[in-house]
Write a protein that binds this DNA or RNA. Sequence first.
RNA 1: GGAGAGAUGGCAGAGUGGUCGAAUGCGGUGGUCUUGAAAACCAUUGUACCGCGAGGUACCGGGGGUUCGAAUCCCUCUCUCUCCGCCA
Length: 422
Amino acid sequence: MLTISQLKNNTQEVIRLLGIKNIDTESKINEILAADQSRKSTQKDHNDLQSDLNAMAKEIGALMRKKEIGKANVLKVKTTGLKEKVKNLQEKQVELEDRIYHLLIELPNIPHPSVKPGINENDNELIEQHGEIFETHALPHWEIATKAGIIDFEAGNKLTGSGFPVYVGQGAKIQRALIHFFLDKATDQGYTEIEVPVIVNEDSAFGTGQLPDKDGQMYFLSQDKLYLIPTAEVPLTNLYRNSIVAQNELPIKLCGYTPCFRREAGSYGKDVRGLNRLHQFDKVEIVQITKPENSYQVLEEMVSYIANLIKELDLPFRIMRLCGKDLSFTAALTFDFEVYSAAQKRWLEVSSVSNFESFQSSRLKLRYKDDNNKNQLLHTLNGSALALPRILAAILENNQDGNRIKIPEALVKYTGFDQIEI
RNA sequence: GGAGAGAUGGCAGAGUGGUCGAAUGCGGUGGUCUUGAAAACCAUUGUACCGCGAGGUACCGGGGGUUCGAAUCCCUCUCUCUCCGCCA
């Protein structure tokens, strides 16, 4: 969440930048600042009175020890009225803090200055494009995969419902190969591989900003009040919830493979055909925690890391900078990676890399000690590296060659085969 | 699922109504000593908010209560551990 000092120091600029996300926050921010003023004065009154009360309690204690019960009793009577006042002030203070907090967590992150306004995803800005896009009579991946017998969509329907495919034989192996390949690459790049729970508690879901914003998008286990993770970002980043890390531990670089679970309520049509949009899918995620002054350089690094990953798989792709409207609640700047899917003739998002600046760390209370030994919020970043289903879809659609599908060379040592016969 | 025990500072671990933001040990930081290091010794070492500052307030798992005063007593919730049962 944003901090009061962010709002106070730059009120007009913050309002303007949030406008780029296409929301008007002026009245809300003014309300927060006014409530904070009143909180401060309430707190001062409250603290002063409490201080008086504490002093009297001490005095009573001293009198009791000297057995001057009479004097003590006189003082006791005097505290009664004060106690009432303190209680009222305390209640008022808590009420104000509560109100400020609830207003604050409803504000999305401030977009980076490079973010353009835009109305929808068509306004996302093309940054780079790689690889060749060619005309082809390739079959869409759901047809070719079914024909080759490597994905059984029907079986998934039977077991669970739509959006839960079953991978068979070479299909299952290619999944495992991709996970292995992505983890090896990330490890080579200095990310520490972590295996985490795929079910998290409410605090964790709140820490990275999924709650309260995306409540309905997560699977919820009501018996235990736990959430299935929509991305490894949640457990990986929450490892550092409520901590103060030493400077020499920075930057923190983590990666992890997890299945991801998303309800995808409201999705329909061609968007959800085949592997395009699933309720359960596999993903390797990379996470970095950095000092504020380094985070944008780190974002660049992560972008080029992911670009190289897709290049190694020989897939045509492009990098988009999200416009304000398309930017998530929590992100300050996001680059999406989209691979071209030859048969569907469309771009499929396979990765999203974001800098959250201090938006997550303020919720997470994730800090470090700066050179002056003061605690400062860190910056958090993460990116998919990569999400499997659409990568597989693109491989199946782009690499069709007669009655076989060619496995990208970099993957062969992981799959153990270099083609899938149809 | 049944029975019991517990939750205190980075860690370990005292503390059962006032002098406790909290002993002690370990760890961390700074220093003395040393050619350097170790050891030893000395000092320092939690977080958040309010205040220009002096300083103040809160926090001993969370919430509520009793009391002039709560880490300490009461209620409640959560979590952890041990034993039994079940089990990859």
